[in-house]
Design a protein around this nucleic acid. Sequence first.
RNA 1: GCGCCGGUCGUAUAGCGGCAAUUACGGGAGACUGUAAAUCUCCUUCCUUCGGGAUUCGAUGGUUCGAGUCCAUCCCGGCGCA
Length: 408
Amino acid sequence: MKFKIEKKLEGKLGRAGTIETIHGVIETPAFVVVGTKGTVKSVNPDQVRDAGAQVVLANTYHLYLQPGDEAVKKMGGLNKMMNWSGPSMTDSGGFQVFSLGAAYKKGISKVIQITNPSLLIPERFDDSDAPRLAKIGQDGVSFTSHLDGSVHYITPEKSIQIQHNIGADMIFAFDECTSPSEDFKYQEEALERTHSWAERSLKEHGKLNALRQAQGKQSIALFGIVQGGREEVLRKKSAKIISEMEVDGQKFDGFGIGGSFAKEDMSTAVKWVNEVLPEEKPRHLLGIGEPEDLFMGVEAGVDLFDCVLPTRLGRNGTIYTKTGKIHIMNTEYRLDVAPIENDCECYTCKNYTKAYLAHLFHGKEMLGGTLASIHNIYFIVNLVKKIRQSIFDGNFDDYKKDFLKLYL
RNA sequence: GCGCCGGUCGUAUAGCGGCAAUUACGGGAGACUGUAAAUCUCCUUCCUUCGGGAUUCGAUGGUUCGAGUCCAUCCCGGCGCA
C-alpha cells in the first residue's frame, strides 16, 4: 500500500491524495462502503462499483463466526469470495468490544447526542453484571456469539490471524472502542489496553506478513487505532504512541481514529489526533458518518471514512437528498412520480420514481432496499468525491457552506 | 317457515358480568454513524389546558351497583331441514 498527498487544504489539516493497493487506487478523501459479512447488504458488487465506491470494509468478528475465516481463505480470500475486484479492508472486531459489551442493550452507539452535559455522568466502570455479549479479559475479549451463544476468546493475535486469513488489503489493529460517557480513569485504562493490544497486533502482523512475503504474496497494510475518548491528553498521547510504535522494525501503515463520540466533541477530538499523527500516512475516521461529519473530517485531516448509514438507512426507507433526508414511506411520496433527485446520476434516480420506491417499501419488496441503498451509497460516496475535488479547485469552504446550507 | 351458528375500533381476530376493550396486519410518524438491524420505537374512536373528559362492540328494550359479555324482540349473514 502506498499513500501520496497531492494537494493540501490551505491553513487546515485537510488533504487530497491517493492510496495505491494491488486491487487499484483509492482517491482520497474517500468513503468506504461497509460490507460487514462480506457483502454490502442488498447490493451486488457491480452496483457498489457503479455507485462510485472504490473500497469496501468487512468485519473480522462476523466473518470469523460465519462462515469462519478458514472458509473465507478457502474461497480465495475476501475479494475473491465476494467478487469484489477493488481495494478492501477489514475491521478488527474492536468495535464489537463496545457494541456487544459496554453498549449492549443500552441504546448507545457511535455518536451520542448530548443535549445536557450533565448526562455525561460516567458510567460505572464495573457494571459488569449488566448483560453483555463481550467481556474484556486479561489479554483479550470473550465474546458470546449472537448467533448460537458459543463463547470465543479473541486476542489481538487472534484478530490479526483471522484478518490475514480473510486477506483484505488493509486491516486494523484490535482495539477497545470506548463510550464517551466513561470517566477519565476508565478511558486511561482502556487506552493502555488498546496500546498494548496495538503492539501485539503489530507484532503478529509482522510475523504473518513475513510469511506472506516468503510465499511471494502481497503484504497487507496494518492500521493502528487511536483512542482516548473525549480527553485531549489521552487522544494526543494515543496518537503519539500509536504513530511511533515500532515492533521488529515495523510501524503502522496508517491510522484509524476510533471511539464513540458526542457529536459536538468529534471535530476537536479528530483535530487533536491529526495534529500529532505523521502527515505522510493515511488516516481513517472509523464509523463516520453523516454529510456534515464528512466535511468536518476532511477539514480536520481525515483521508478515509466508513459508515453503515447509507445502506442501513436505505434498507429502512430513509433516503439522502441534498435538501436533507426523506422517509420514502411517508404519505407525500405515494403519488410522487419524480425521481429522488432530478439531477442525480445514480441508477435508481435514472430509472425509478419516488412513487415506485414508496410502493416497493410499502409492499416490503426487496428491491426497495436495494434501490434506496444504491442511491444512498452514490450520494455519500459522491459527496466525498466532490469534497475532494473542491480541495483541488481551492473552493472547499464555499462548497461546504453551500452544501450544508441546503442540506441541514 | 323451523333449527343451529355468527354480527367487536380499515381488515382479520380476542373477549364468557368490572373494558376504551386483545393480538396481527393495514395506516400515520420517528429513530438508525468501525451493522446483534430488509430492524426498532411511538401513535391509530372523538375531544383535551395531557390531569382527564365524552361516546363505543348490528338495533331496540330489559335484568344488574355495573352489560360486547345475561334475557327478549327485531335486522343482517352462513349452514341445515322444509
